[in-house]
Each structure stands twice: as C-alpha cells, then as structure tokens.
C-alpha cells in the first residue's frame, strides 16, 4: 500500500479550486445563495415580474375614443367582464372545463386501474409509455389529427356510414347547442378534442393514487360480500379521489386557458383564451385581456385551495 501520510491534517488542494472549495465548505450559505440566485432571478424577474405587470394592467382601462391605455387605477375593466357577452364567454369556458374534466376522469379510470392493478413487468412499461407518448407528442399535431378525423369527409363520417349509422350522426348534429354543420365546427368536436388532449394528464395521477391501494383491500371488500359496484363506490372511488382531483387540476386549468383548440375545432363562439387573444391582439385592449386572464387564475387558485384540503397534492 502506498501514499502513507504521517500528518493527520493534510494540506488541501492548492490552486483556485482548492481554495474555493474550502471557502464554500466553510460558508455553505454563500454556496447556496450562488446556486439559487440564477434560477430565482430568472423566474422572479422575468416570470413573476411579467405576471405582476399583467395584473397591474387589468386595473387600467382603455380610452374608448383614442384606443390608448388610460393609466389610472380603476375597476371599470373588471366591470366589463360582467356584461352579458363577456360573462357568457366565462360561463361557457367553465362549463366546458367541468365537462371535459368529468369525461376525462371516466375514461381515465379503467386505464389507470388496469395499469395499477393488473399490468406488470413488460405490460406495465408498455402502459406507461402508452400514456407518456401521447402526453408528450405534439399538441398541434394532435389537434390536427382530430381535424382530419372530425372533418365532414373524414374518418368518423366514413365509420358511421359503414355501420349504417349516418342517421345517428345527423340526428346528433341537428341538436341545438351541441350540434352544428359538422363535428369539426361543433361544441361536440371541441369537447372531444379537449378530452383527448388532456386525458393523459388525468391517467397518470389516478394511476399513482391507485398504485397505493393495497390489492387485499379490494379482496377484503369482495370477501365481505361487496358487489363490484359497491366495492367501487365505497372502496376504490374514495381512494382514487385524490388522484382524480390532482388530474382535474390539469384538465381544468388547461381547458380554461386554451385558445387554439376552440379556434380550430369548434363553433365561432369564443372561450376565455380566445377572448384574451383577441383583446390583446386585434382589439388592442390589453387591460381587458389582462382582466380576462385573472379569471382562470382566480378559479385555479380556488380550485387548488380546495384540492389541497382534499390532500390531492400527495398524488401528483
């Protein structure tokens, strides 16, 4: 054996690195500060700063004659949100977000349950990738794919024709509100695409919550004579609920803020995101656009607060 040293306290590495290393070891707080400063400055100044500036703008108003921003504190812009045409936009978006969340939960549950309880080994990995790939693949391409599917001459019309169910599709399209000229310009289309695009965000947390349900709990319920429906109602659902709430944070928030899906697939009636986009763009009314963005922030703040009380964050 070599490198026998007879001193008990050794010289440190010489040079800048050695000295710097000793310095940081003696002053861990300075090292911590140096590590935190770049990300905090970036996020704090660029992101929070912008966000704050935006919020500030919502308290200004626009001069109706000149179209210039009047830099005086006022709540007038918020009052504009309450006029019927604007309030309809908010209502429409929130109802859509709620329906999308509900549908995503219903479709996600069997996938998440199967993946959590029955899939193992290779299948488990396959399930995981099967959810991750659509989650991460291009948002626009997914929307585009649905444009292909929902088009009047597209695959869905073809499938209905093949099954001799064209009458059913026509009947649905002739309904008020949900119907329209074709699926791609109806609320139904918007709804389907929203559900599709946000579904993976629901599956992952529900699966994470269900993974933590011990299998014998379900067996115990079955042993005690629990009907599958009762087992679901009294055992599975309550245990999956935190996961569903965690997932709904995503589906709800993403639906509230989206402006591309309703623009490409849907009727011409606006959602919050579109309203924001239109107000800041063509209308040039930044204060109103800012006030519109406050709506999802407030709704999500309330939602997160409720979710936190339900313990949903453990399932994230």
């Amino acid at each position: 054996m070599s490198a026998i040293t007879q001193t008990s306290i050794m010289e440190g590495r010489s040079g800048t690195f050695g000295r710097l290393s000793d310095f940081f070891w003696r002053n861990p707080k300075i090292l911590l500060f140096l590590m935190l400063a770049p990300p905090l400055l970036w996020l704090g100044i660029i992101y929070l700063g912008s966000l704050f500036a935006l919020l500030l703008q919502s308290f200004f108003s626009i001069d109706e004659f000149s179209g210039l921003i009047n830099y005086e504190f006022t709540l007038a812009t918020y009052r504009q949100l309450l006029i019927p045409s604007n309030f309809d936009i908010i209502l429409r978006t929130v109802v859509m977000a709620a329906l999308v969340t509900l549908a995503a939960a219903v479709i996600a549950f069997p996938i998440a349950y199967y993946a959590a309880r029955y899939a193992k080994g290779k299948w488990k990995a396959l399930f995981y990738l099967g959810v991750m790939l659509p989650l991460w693949s291009s948002y626009l391409v997914k929307v585009y794919a649905w444009k292909l599917i929902l088009a009047k001459e597209g695959i869905l019309t073809w499938v209905f024709a093949r099954l001799h169910l064209t009458w059913l599709l026509d009947a649905w399209l002739s309904l008020p509100i949900v119907g329209g000229n074709s699926l791609s310009i109806s609320y139904t289309g918007t709804f389907i695409v929203f559900v599709y695009v946000w579904l993976p965000f629901m599956i992952l947390p529900v699966q994470a919550a269900l993974e933590r349900v011990p299998g014998n709990l379900i067996e115990a319920s079955a042993d005690l004579g629990g009907h599958p429906a009762q087992t679901f109602r009294h055992v599975l659902f309550p245990l999956a609920l935190p996961g569903i709430i965690a997932g709904s944070i995503f589906t709800f928030s993403l639906t509230l803020g989206d402006y591309i899906i309703p623009q490409i697939i849907g009727s011409s009636r606006l959602f919050i995101g579109q309203a924001v986009y239109a107000q800041q763009g063509t209308a040039g009314n930044i204060p109103l656009a800012a006030a519109f963005t406050v709506v999802p922030i407030v709704i999500m703040g309330f939602y997160l607060w409720m979710a936190k009380k339900q313990g949903a964050f453990d399932a994230l």
């Binding site: 912008s50 935006l54 928030s253 803020g257 989206d258 995101g273 800041q280 800012a290 999802p296 999500m300």
Partner: peptide
C-alpha cells in the same frame, strides 16, 4: 401550472 396563455400574454406585455 398556469395556463400557457397567461405566461404568454404576461411576457408579451412585459
């Protein structure tokens, strides 16, 4: 966590 449109418009106005 916040909808992308908020990040977008906030940056733009900044």
């Amino acid at each position: 966590a916040l909808p992308g449109i908020i990040t977008g418009i906030a940056l733009r106005s900044a």
